[in-house]
Nucleic acid binder design. Structure first.
Length: 812
RNA sequence: GCGGAUGUGGCGGAAUGGCAGACGCAUCAGACUCAAAAUCUGACGGGGGCGACCUCGUGUGGGUUCAAGUCCCACCAUCCGCACCA
């Protein structure tokens, strides 16, 4: 046998045929299935084989659903605003719109090589004014609902990108995009009040069929905790209570009696006031030094620093006099920016107390005892309370839950919940993004651009260069900036900040299904018909950013009645990354990028699709090895030969073939529906090898071949269509294999008459016997003993028979 | 530090608690060929034996079980996420 499969000819033929007769046609009688890819950023580097994987997985799944009789929504578009295009524009002196358009054209060509069933009529591009009109519209709606607000505050600032960043965009104190150390900068910012949705974003995770890992990451990011705020009054020089109050937040109110000091963040509003004449110089110096530290420094300086303010406050529970310190290990923007410190039961407080010689009072007995010479904090909330006044004798875990209520009843504080989630810093001081549709008027304040005047077009500009001053390049375009107030008609200025990259990608899945609608973001009817997304496929790198923002947007749009669902993505699948040798991420600078273009030319689209899946489990990272593609290419050749040699033979449909056929359908369907796509491919190879054996013996019947072709179709669509056509030569109208339905299997038809059963002695296999499936336990064991009779030398103590699998004879 | 994932031949990987290494890559041998490529056939974890066979073996150490890659406990390594959130 030799190579007779001509992938180029076949793939060209079917590319043309499908262009003329699309296989996924809209049909209102069918149920919809929305299978979505995370849309790409059209980078100038083009696609590598790693990008292919997610698209192949989603296409296989779409085609499978299509064969099951669904009408598939399977769109593709471009997330095209953002820094790389802008940086490229700055470097090359071309308008980012131009380079973006070129990149889109190139990536679209590459994506079309995958031969996925994308419906290109649904295409969207976030930089298209007809698209970002609605990105702006959502912002206006949020503004009107009080969810978008302005605030002057110290924000994360990337000195390299020269723009502010959201918390989510700071990774280990570095810029998510460029890796530069993030600093703080005081800037007027637009914020989105995502915290108003914290509880819903947390609770609704339960509804989602998502990887646990992603749910966990979002849960941790939202970071809800229960505890209490406790009010401490500042003491005067005589140790008497004053009116001045400092509120702390704690999740361990049970340890309140053990609070031996208090720490305020250096940025706390009372920090300076608490200094005395003796401490003022040191306190002010500490506050100043802290303000200079970048967030990286603050993270890396694990050694505790601090300064005593000279002031004390009174523990409201036991009247103890508690010294007040400042330290940068307390965060200004979480809780109240002040904490009570219980060194006996908190690692950080312990470390601080040791360093500054502050007393340590144990209030929870560990193993029923008070610890002598504590060397580390006892942080578990389990044990009996000691040194705790009337709380003595209570169980700490119980008290921890009840204390907030008790504190509230005593009038010294209140039960509270807190979140790590912060509001979303939404403005960027860059050019290539959606202008924020706000007009600033001296008289009327911030006024949204009237909805009928949207979109606010991104103006042409001389220089895209970020200014670095905290102003966007748009600020230089005076005749754009100066405008009239929509409210009073007086002179006013446009907002010159733009939106972050995430703005356009937070709702694009809605626009696909109604991408030409000029009057609405999406018609309610279409949204109700086609959404939410049934299956969302993409990389895990968006676990918090994009996926959290999209959920927030969807919930907002649900609240204002635009859509009728409050979670956008029912099911999520994260494909693993394809890396170069030794697990190194493919990148231009590493020189290990494998382009799909050559592989498609040499092996064909179908082979590359199969190999993308065969390379490893889809949810795990896999190392790319070019040589491996030969294996799937050989398989397709052998399958081609199997079908073409048998299609006209009219071989009889033997019992063996029927059984094999049903098993094939069963195995492939099982593996496919459990997303074990690599073993689907090995299953195809295995069954192909078996059929080739049978082909040599007496031939393979056409029904079996047709069944195999249908199963293979979602994976290798071109060769399957071609063989389907050949197998149906002579029938009235052949039709596409994708209209042929997904094959079904019959358990009864798969059943074997007899099975090979391993015979073990003390758990070690010594023989194999073939037994009828309905053999009795006694007969099975008898047959087993017979097969190993020469090795049965001891006393038999136990006999195990697992039907169809194993006989184990235990002897002493 | 906390949390999660992973660990199986030369390599990628497969195994509802039931014959470890399916399927493929690479390698070796054979067939075909003047030859090479392609294709086809076969071998392919380690050690031992002429031999049918024996024995060890799924990161390490224990445990549960008739039976463990799989379940439990304690470690080790690698990768990922979070990281002073009180």
């Amino acid at each position: 046998m030799s190579i007779s499969y001509n992938h180029r000819e076949i793939e060209d033929k079917w590319t043309k045929r499908w262009a003329e007769h699309p296989v996924n046609v809209k049909d209102d009688k069918k149920k919809k299935y929305y299978c979505l890819d995370m849309f790409p950023y059209p980078s100038g580097n083009g696609l590598h084989v790693g990008h292919w994987r997610g698209y192949v997985i989603s296409d296989v799944w779409s085609r499978y659903k299509m064969m099951q009789g669904y009408h598939i929504i399977h769109p593709m578009g471009w997330d095209a605003f953002g820094l790389p295009a802008e940086n490229y524009a700055i470097k090359m002196g071309v308008h980012p719109a131009k380079s973006t358009a070129e990149n889109v054209a190139n990536i679209k060509r590459q994506i079309q090589q995958i031969a996925a069933v994308y419906d290109w009529d649904l295409e969207v591009n976030t930089t298209d004014p007809n698209y970002y009109k609605w990105t702006q519209w959502i912002f206006v709606k949020m503004f009107k609902e009080g969810l978008a607000y302005e605030k002057e505050m110290p924000i994360n600032w990337c000195p390299s990108c020269k723009t502010g960043l959201a918390n989510e965009e700071v990774v280990n104190g570095k810029c998510e995009r460029c890796g530069a150390d993030v600093t703080k900068k005081n800037l007027r910012q637009w914020m989105l009040k995502i915290t108003a949705y914290a509880d819903r974003l947390l609770n609704d995770l339960d509804k989602l069929d998502w990887p646990e890992k992603v749910k966990k990451m979002q849960t941790d990011w939202i970071g809800k905790s229960h505890g209490a705020e406790v009010d401490f009054l500042v003491a005067d020089q005589n140790g008497e209570k004053t009116e001045k109050k400092i509120t702390v937040y704690t999740t361990r109110p049970d340890t309140l009696h053990g609070a031996t000091f208090m720490v305020l963040a250096p940025e706390h509003e009372l920090a300076k006031d608490l200094a005395t004449d003796e401490t003022r110089a040191a306190v002010e110096d500490y506050i100043y030094q802290s303000s200079l530290k970048s967030s990286v420094d603050r993270l890396q300086d694990k050694e505790k620093t601090g300064v005593f303010t000279g002031s004390y406050c009174i523990n409201p529970l036991n009247g103890a006099k508690v010294p007040i310190w400042l330290s940068d290990y307390v965060l200004a923007d979480y809780g109240t920016g002040a904490i009570m410190c219980v060194p006996a039961h908190d690692d950080r407080d312990f470390e601080f107390a040791k360093k500054f010689n502050i007393p340590i009072i144990q209030v929870i007995a560990k193993d029923g005892k008070e610890i002598e010479n504590m060397t580390e904090a006892y942080t578990q909330a389990s044990g009996i309370m000691i040194h705790s006044g009337e709380w003595d004798g209570m169980e700490s875990s119980v008290l921890k839950k009840e204390a907030p209520k008790m504190i509230e009843d005593m009038g010294i504080g209140r039960a509270t919940t807190n979140y790590k989630l912060r509001d979303w810093v939404f403005s960027r001081q860059r050019y290539w993004g959606e202008p924020i549709p706000i007009i600033h008027c001296e008289k009327c304040g911030a006024v949204p651009v009237p909805e009928e005047e949207l979109p606010v077009l991104l103006p042409e500009v001389e220089s895209y260069q970020p200014t670095g001053t905290g102003e966007s390049p748009l600020a230089d375009i005076k005749d754009w900036v100066n405008t009239k107030c929509p409210c009073c008609g007086g002179p006013a200025k446009r907002e010159t900040n733009t939106m972050p990259q995430w703005a356009g990608s937070s709702w694009y899945f809605l626009r696909y299904v109604d991408n030409k609608n000029e009057n609405e973001l999406v018609s309610r009817e279409k949204a109700d018909t086609y959404l939410p997304v049934d299956m969302y496929i993409g990389g895990v790198e968006h676990a918090v950013l994009h996926l959290l923002y999209s959920r927030f947007y969807t919930k907002f749009l649900y609240d204002i009645g635009v859509v009728g669902f409050d979670e956008p993505f029912k099911k999520l699948f994260n494909q693993g990354m394809i890396t170069g040798k030794n697990g190194i991420k493919m990148s231009k600078s590493k020189g290990n990028v494998v382009s799909p273009d050559d592989l498609v030319r040499d092996y064909g689209c179908d082979s590359l699709r199969l190999y993308e899946l065969f390379v490893g489990p889809p949810e795990l990272d896999s190392e790319w090895d070019d040589r491996g593609i030969d294996g799937v290419y050989r398989f397709l050749n052998r399958f081609w030969n199997l079908v073409t040699e048998n299609k006209d033979k009219n071989a009889a449909e033997t019992k063996e073939l029927v059984k094999l056929r049903h098993k094939l359908v069963h195995d492939i369907t099982q593996r496919l529906t459990s997303f074990s796509l690599n073993t689907v491919i090995s299953g195809f190879m295995e069954y192909n090898n078996k059929l080739l054996e049978l082909s040599k013996k007496g031939g393979v019947d056409v029904e079996t071949l047709k069944t195999f072709v249908r199963l293979l179709a979602p994976f290798a669509p071109h060769i399957s269509e071609e063989l389907w056509e050949q197998l149906n030569q002579g029938s009235e109208s052949v039709g596409s294999v994708f209209d042929a339905g997904w094959p079904e299997y019959d358990e009864a038809a798969m059943a074997d008459d007899e099975k090979e059963v391993a015979v073990q002695i003390n758990g070690k296999t010594r023989a194999v016997v073939t037994l009828p499936v309905d053999v009795s336990k006694e007969d099975a064991i008898a047959a087993g003993k017979e097969a190993v009779s020469d090795k049965l030398t001891g006393t038999i103590v136990k006999e195990i028979y697992v039907p169809g699998r194993i006989i184990n004879i235990v002897q002493k």
